[in-house]
Design a protein around this nucleic acid. Structure first.
Lengths: 208, 208
DNA sequence: ACGATATGAATGAATG
DNA sequence: CATTCATTCATATCGT
């Protein structure tokens, strides 16, 4: 996230089922929401930025979540929401930040609210150190089978830029005046190539 | 919400680079976070209370932030978050207040919420009464154009009861691969009473 | 110096 | 896909 702002994060504060199994009556649903682990985030971002996955289909979600489950508890809807949110926020950010009236200072005061970092989130927790060493055996590319990425699955680009996430093959309009707004948002063209595009947003959530 | 009795300075709290400018190396990620100036706050509150702005849309955010920029560094996200937070906190407090629950056993002291703020409230949307500012140089109201906000503001009913519902005895087998379906920690019974959002059917229940 | 509180920021989860 | 809500973290600021 922010340059030096380490975000808090629990690696795996929640258990499988939370405290219910305790038989007790402690009315604390443990953690109510999914708390992604570092690895999970890393992989998700990798998919998002390096593989152009923006709106995975049900099958993809399945595979992704299955893969991520190795690193901690996760469910399909988490993956679904993650992509939805990530995408939406990226866009939103851009939307109301495109302001900056003609400044006469010659210097851009707007330092971008968040230059979209690439990977590595500062998930740090004293007791759980990243077992993956964060650079060696990290599964850069997830063998998610076919992923539906028509051949793009292997596209592994550098993962260090802030604002242009290579829109491979697609109309790469990287024209940014002064960038900063960073993160090329729409590189999701090929996403539609494999997505059947059902009626609408998928319905994965099964809360009831 | 806030004792408004703090010192009124902060003309230029932090600059882009804040206090790490030693040596010329990057060090401090600029001001860690936006610190609104009193003028900015005054205007924001005016918009919030006197104009009923609660959730400005992207365009409005742009305008607002552009306007507030006169009083100090600010970005769209700041405005966005400000409204989000302000609204959320106001509601949050209200929520507990209204709870007439006897609170069995006098536990949960729930420190009384300070009924501060709201000096100039009552959401009278039409018109602007900047007079309350009590400040010397009140630039009046910001001609931000049209705030297409509904004037609702009086009625704020809660609809979410997130009590902890002990899911006693559920533990055990559900901790495996089963999509999220069925994992539902709190299959509350009263859920049906007020909300019955069942437009999403589980897509893939099987697992992988 | 701390501890408490206020509040900016971030993000999971929903809803429209 | 946009918007909103709830929660939680992080930190600025104030009180003692």
């Amino acid at each position: 996230m922010e340059p030096q702002q380490q975000q808090q994060q629990q690696q795996q504060p929640n258990n499988e089922d939370g405290g219910s199994g305790k038989g007790g009556f402690l009315c604390r649903p443990s953690s109510t929401r999914w708390t992604p682990t570092t690895d999970q985030i890393r992989i998700l971002k990798d998919l998002y930025y390096n593989n152009g996955v923006r709106s995975p289909s049900a099958e993809q979600i399945q595979r992704i979540s299955a893969r991520l489950r190795q690193y901690g508890k996760i469910e399909g809807k988490n993956v679904f929401y993650w992509f939805q949110n990530h995408k939406a926020r990226e866009r939103q950010k851009k939307r109301f930040n495109v302001s900056d009236v003609p400044m006469q200072k010659g210097l851009t005061p707007t330092a971008a609210w968040k230059p979209e970092e690439s990977l590595h989130t500062n998930y740090s927790l004293p007791n759980i150190s990243p077992g993956v060493a964060a650079s060696s055996s990290s599964p850069g590319v997830i063998p998610l089978g076919q992923m539906g990425n028509c051949g793009y699955g292997s596209l592994t680009m550098e993962k260090s830029f802030r604002d242009c996430s290579i829109s491979s093959g697609v109309g790469g309009s990287i024209s940014h005046n002064f960038g900063w707004v960073g993160v090329d948002p729409y590189s999701s063209s090929y996403t539609d190539l494999f997505d059947k595009r059902r009626s609408m947003e998928e319905k994965y959530l099964g809360r009831e």
